[in-house]
Amino acid sequence: MIRLLVLWLTLTASAFAVSNPAELLPDPAQEYRARALGQRLRCLVCQNNSVEESEADFARDLRRVIRERVKAGEDDAQVITWMTARYGDFVRLSPAFSAQTVLLWASPFLALLAGGAAVVLARRRQMPPPVPLTDVEREAVRKLSGS
């Protein structure tokens, strides 16, 4: 499930800065992880790039740190914690779930809920209980349906 989620997160294309191949980790699995991590972190210099895309010197340093830590066997959470301990929550491109971000993460559900509620309300308002047919009407229906 976690792997599926990670795949899901990286589904929309990958983007990278021109960088030195010497930076990359020899182990493809580790390099893949490092890259995914870098894409979750914001470059503080070119603030609209992730660390993985940015050509800033700062991003290069962080790419090196990420790879050192991944190589040393740290898991994703440990690397992210190392980053937030120095650069704050601003460095995370996907904010952690907390009291401050609960509205953000709940927004898809709230939007769907509001849409659903609006439809239900609109339908309830429009649906008067059907009035039973009078005898005359019933007779007319019988005639029309030709039975």
Binding site: L44, V45, F58, D61, V65, R86, Y87, G88
Partner: peptide, 12 residues
């Protein structure tokens, strides 16, 4: 190497 800068959270 910029290591102390990393510890301080320097970005430029």
């Amino acid at each position: 190497e910029g290591n102390a800068a990393l510890e301080f959270g320097v970005y430029g």
